[in-house]
Each structure stands twice: as C-alpha cells, then as structure tokens.
Design a binder for these strands. Structure first.
Lengths: 233, 233
DNA sequence: CGAGAAGTTGACACGAGTCAACCTCAGTGG
DNA sequence: CCACTGAGGTTGACTCGTGTCAACTTCTCG
C-alpha cells in the first residue's frame, strides 16, 4: 500500500526508460538488506556476488593498501547503483563499501541480474551508463588529486556533500549525516589536522558554521569559489 | 596472405573466447586509421563515435582542466581497446587520446560495434571486461596519487613503462618509445624539475642509465623497491 | 652553424604532514 | 545533580618534500 518508497526506487537511474511492468519485475527480484552504521556491505578483494541499489542511507567506497592507508573514492546516497560490474564479469571488488549511516539496500544476485538484463536491454543500458558515470568520476578525482591544492579539495568535498545531501535550514545548508573531521579529511585525501584548520578558518570567514560532527554551509557561492578558480589559497 | 599482423590482433583482449569465424567478421568490419605522432585520436568533450583497437604504436589518455593543466591518466600500447564506452552509450569522451608515437588503430563506428555485440555476446563481454579493468586502474591511480610520494610515483611510472614496453638490451631494459622528462612527469603527476632530479639521482645510484628522451632500467628490483615499500624516500 | 628544444642545477618559498599538548563536550553511572 | 571519562576537535611548533623560477648547458635538427 505504501507506494511511496517504491516510487522513490523506481525513480532511480536503474529503472529509467524501463516499462512499469518490467520495473516491477526487476524490483520484485531484489532482496532487501540492512547494513548497520560502520559495517561493510562488501570488502575489497571479495568476489562480486550481487548488484546493489541504495534505498536509504549513505555508503562510502574506499580503498586500502597493504600499509592500511585508506582513501575514500567517493560516497553514495539513495538511488545509487553499486557494484555495476556484477552484471558482466566474475571478478573481485576493487574497493570496500562501508555504511556511513544505517543503510537499507536492495540486492540482486549476479545470476539473477544478468538474466534480467538479458531480457530487458534497457536495464543493461542503465547499469552501463552508471558505470560510465563512475568512470568519469574517477577521472575527475584523479585530476583533482593531481592538480588541486588541499583547500580546494576540502572545499570541493564539502560542496559535493552540501549539494547531494544538504538540508536547507534557517542558518544555511546543513550537511545531513553527521560528519567528523577525520571523515572529511578522508574524502579530501588529507589529514584531520589540516581539515580542522581549514574549516576553522572558513568558519571565521563566515563561510561555514561548524560544530562537533556538524557542518552548515552559510555561503555556497563562496565555498564554490574556494573549490574552483581560486588562484592559490 | 600476411597472416601475421592479423594473428596479433586476434590475440587481443577484444577477441578472446570468440570463435575464429566471428573474430574474422568483427575484424573485417573495422576500418584502419593512421595517427601521426602528437596528433589526437579523439579529444575530451567530443562525442564518442567509435571503438578503437590499437594495432601499432602508443597512445596516452589525458585530462585537461579549464586552466590547461594536463594529467596523463595512462598510456596504452598494441592490443588495447580504447573508448569502450562506445558500445553502450552516446556520450562524450572524458579524456583526450594523443599519439605518443605514430599509431595505427582499427576503428569500429558506434552503430557497427553495437550491432556486432548484439550478435556476439562474447564480444560485448570482452569490451566490458576491459572497462572493468580500466575502472580498477583508475582506483589504483587514485590511491597512488593520494598516498604515495612523488619518488614512488615516478618509480612506478618507469616500472610500468619498462614492463609494458621495455626492450631487453645489453645495458638493461630500454624504454622503447623515446620519453621526455616532461612526459614522465605528466605520468607521475609531478613537475619536470622534480622528475629530472629524481632520475638523475637514480642514475648516480646505478639504477638507471639516462639520456635525452631515453631511459634504461639497469636494476628492475631496485626500481621496484623505490616504487613499492620504501619507508619514505 | 644557428636556433630552439630538452634537460640540469641551485636558491628559495611555502604548503601540508607530524607530533604533542590541550580543550570541551556528550554520555554514563553513582 | 555532579564527577568522570573518552571521543572528537583545536592549536602551536617544527620539519620536509616539492613546486617555482632563473640561469645555464647540451644536444638535435634543418
């Protein structure tokens, strides 16, 4: 009866262009799964077993190397498709997916989604499109890391968070799932200390209001300027 | 009659698992194209028109931002599939492909390759697999940029070049297409000056022999050590 | 042989990481 | 209601890696 959550799902990229009946069929084939905060949906190196669609909550994809250094590749919110590779190749995850908040995801086993994709070309196309998007994201990230300064990257991370999951309040845009300095630092590829200094200085300038695991963007344009075309500082 | 070049092509990732007849059919559908050194096969922002397979020579994929800063994402040699996205979506290139040496590539127009992929599922699978590989490469690159020092990255770039396109000589492994300091720097995401200093010092240590647009790796293990687990320097 | 591309080297500045000491809240249990 | 505790955050001092710029050398090609 509660058609709402279902409607939200059907609006996801996974179902664009799919006929309602087909969308229903695909949706029916999924099994829901709950991921507690801090738990992993899957881990780097594990074989890809399923395709996931985020229903609620937020996930981060990160890579760790032998030394244990972690880099957050990016985060995803509701509607995002994760592990698109499931569709077309038996291989291992190159990244780990950790829940930043409690998450509810839909899962389609590899076989099942492959079979569905065979019958609904549009479904395959949709998954491929998201993979192409991820590819482009990766390139942007590479470019950012290689050419931008730490302040730019931190500003950009905040900007993205504000846009993707900000909630308008009287004060400005509140970044919704509480985010610590360390998490922000991971997103931007820097240290907690540097991130802390930066947000403190931006708070002094009135661009942000900050608190414990809390960020409110008071001036999106000024933050964007910091992320974008500033000539070094 | 000259079955040789064709055999090399058929050994490419694009044709693995494909029946000989199908491979021949696909191959026959391609139109060859010559790219002079320094010319672009395609440019960032242009719509994807075709799928390419490198027959001879070497290409680099790079991204430039509004400020004109260029970052080399990676390079590709013979047998590599480029623009795999062509198969499944009408979109624009996120990168520019420039010929590092004179290149000969095979091109399949978007429509044509899509139609072939429809009839030969294995072909589609092969393309998807290379895309997944690229994805993984991108993640590695992100990780490298975020966590490794410049010397590590330069060493790693040389290592990869030596492995992928080195020629054994009496002196050691010669990196084949002549490579300038600037090009090496672009690959590693640093400046020509720093790259120059690094290779000079490694030449002093006997790890490399260097010249103008010329690198010979004299000790692969020592170079690997520099790229890998050195504890800072 | 001239000119320009490619590469070298030194001096310098500065961004950003590291470490240590410290502060300050949000819970918790008495 | 208060004290305790620990996670989360701040700030200063210091160091070092790397980018920047300038001046110079050396090779290559026409």
């Amino acid at each position: 009866m509660a058609g709402d959550p279902r409607a939200i799902l059907i609006a996801s990229d996974l179902f664009t262009g799919l006929e309602p009946a087909a969308a229903e069929e695909v949706l029916a084939a999924a099994t829901p799964r709950q991921v507690p905060r801090g738990a992993a949906l899957f881990r780097q190196g594990e074989p890809v077993e399923a395709l996931y669609l985020i229903e609620r909550g937020r996930l981060k994809l990160s890579q760790v190397n032998a030394d244990g250094e972690e880099v957050t590749v990016r985060t995803f919110g509701p509607g995002a498709i994760v592990a698109g590779v499931a569709l077309f190749d038996r291989r291992n995850f190159p990244v780990t997916a950790t829940a930043l908040t409690v998450c509810r995801v839909l899962a389609w086993p590899r076989q099942r989604i492959a079979e569905l994709a065979g019958r609904h070309p549009q479904l395959r196309l949709n998954v491929m499109r998201t993979i192409a998007d991820r590819m482009q994201d990766s390139f942007s990230k590479i470019h950012e890391l290689a050419t931008e300064s730490v302040p730019q990257r931190v500003a950009r991370a905040l900007l993205r968070l504000a846009r993707e999951q900000g909630r308008r309040t009287a004060d400005g845009i509140l970044i919704e799932p509480p985010l610590g300095r360390q998490e922000l630092a991971d997103l931007a590829g820097t240290t907690m200390f540097t991130a802390s200094r930066l947000v403190a200085s931006w708070a002094r300038d009135g661009i942000l209001a900050v608190g414990r695991r809390r960020f409110v963007v008071r001036s999106l344009p000024r933050l964007a300027a910091l992320a974008g075309d500033s000539s070094r500082g």
